[in-house]
Design a protein around this nucleic acid. Structure first.
Lengths: 138, 138
DNA sequence: TCCTACAATGGACAATGTCTAAGTCAAGTG
DNA sequence: CACTTGACTTAGACATTGTCCATTGTAGGA
């Protein structure tokens, strides 16, 4: 993740304690936090960080393509730091747990020209839904 | 769509003017309204209908499987009355226009057991993103 | 027609996200 | 190293979307 900080500095990002903390919080695999969850964790490391800054920083990271917004949850946006390895998501319909998954095949190729309605299609987001082992056991 | 009203009556739904209006508003192809858009259109036909009733009715229609919630928009839930014909969505990244599309192939089959992490996978939602003809012309 | 359970209402509340004005500070410059 | 400047942060007001509840209304059966 320090790679990330490097890349951002190279792109002219001013490096502040707040931004560093947000980047740290987002580090890891299978991380899919909402903005408020990011804020909650950031506050632990840097108590005076404000909500607005977290929202701003997340927005910038998304614009820069370093973090993805995913819509697995219909309430709040979630942020996925794993932006450089293409993947999709598997969501538990009961507890909301999210895993990154890598389906075989290319869904983009599955959309014939006749179904594109003149759109220039550039991206696909696939969300699998089901019940996770924990929840199906209970 | 009157089929819908029939089906609902058969299931013991009490038929009220409000519910009829909500069902009418949702009639059609490529309809993907937010709850507040549904409310706005319902008010035209029945001025005293309340927001709460629209939300309740939409929630019931979803529970009954007559309408789908789709997460193409990251702000608000959208409601898709085309619940009985499986399909996916193509969204314009600029103007937000949404089309129903029917990709070939079955994305469910593309998720190998090794990528299921013990989940019982039951459903897939595919969202294609791109730029629609109108927006790319501009 | 009358009853009653179910539905609708409206307004308070909650959750998520956006904006602004004012203060603060990172980092380049001399 | 101190200075300067414009980008960054802050707190809190505001906006949007969604939920809840107590009260009032009404669909549809007896």
């Amino acid at each position: 993740m320090s790679d990330l900080l490097e890349r951002l500095r190279d792109r002219g990002w001013r490096m502040t304690a707040q931004r560093r903390v947000v980047a740290e919080v987002l580090d890891g695999e299978h991380v899919h936090l909402t903005a408020d969850e990011v804020h909650a964790r950031a506050v632990v490391k840097l108590p005076e960080i404000s909500r607005a800054t977290v929202y701003n920083t997340l927005g910038e990271l998304v614009t820069l393509g370093e973090v993805l917004e995913v819509a697995t949850d219909k309430r709040a946006k979630r942020y996925d730091p794993n932006a450089h390895r293409p993947h999709h998501h598997l969501v538990c319909a009961r507890c909301g747990a999210i895993r990154d998954v890598h389906p075989s095949g290319d869904p983009l190729a599955d959309l014939p020209a006749s179904e594109r309605f003149g759109f220039t299609v550039s991206d696909v987001e696939v969300t699998y839904r089901g019940v996770c082992p924990n929840c199906s056991a209970a």
